[in-house]
Amino acid sequence: MDLDEVGRHAESLPDVQRKGTEARPGWVIRDRLVARLHDPQTLAIRVLLDEREALLDSHPDIFGVLPRMEAHHKVEAYLDQADPAAVCAAIDLAWESQRR
Rank of each mutant, 00 (worst) to 15 (best):
H9L: 01
L56K: 05
D15S: 10
K74L: 06
E53H: 06
M69H: 15
Q17Y: 04
S97L: 04
L55S: 08
P14R: 14
L56T: 02
T21I: 09
T42K: 13
A23C: 04
P40T: 02
E51N: 14
A23S: 13
G7F: 01
S58F: 11
A23V: 01
S12Y: 12
D4H: 10
G64I: 01
G7T: 05
R8K: 08
L55D: 05
D92H: 04
A54H: 10
V47E: 15
G20I: 07
W27C: 05
D57K: 13
Q81S: 10
A94H: 05
L48F: 13
F63L: 00
A86P: 04
R32M: 08
D2S: 10
L79P: 00
I62Q: 02
A54W: 10
V47L: 03
G20D: 06
V28Q: 12
A85R: 14
S12I: 09
A71I: 11
R36K: 00
A10F: 14
E51L: 05
K74G: 08
I62H: 00
W95N: 05
G20H: 06
T42S: 07
F63H: 00
L93G: 10
H59A: 08
E96M: 03
E96D: 14
Q17S: 02
H59Q: 09
I91P: 01
I45F: 01
A89S: 14
H73M: 09
I29L: 07
E11D: 05
D83R: 06
H9Y: 13
V16I: 07
P60R: 12
D4P: 02
R100V: 11
G7A: 15
E70N: 11
E76D: 00
V34P: 04
H73I: 02
A82V: 03
R32G: 01
R100H: 13
D61A: 12
I45S: 01
I91W: 04
R18E: 05
V16L: 15
A82S: 06
V75K: 03
V65K: 02
A89R: 05
V75E: 09
D80I: 00
P40C: 01
G20S: 08
A90V: 06
P40F: 03
A10C: 04
V65E: 12
I62L: 04
L48H: 15
R99H: 13
Q41S: 12
S58L: 07
R100I: 08
P60A: 13
R32V: 08
H9N: 07
L66G: 06
R52S: 08
T42A: 11
A82R: 11
A77M: 07
D61H: 11
A10H: 13
P40A: 06
V47S: 10
P14F: 04
P25K: 03
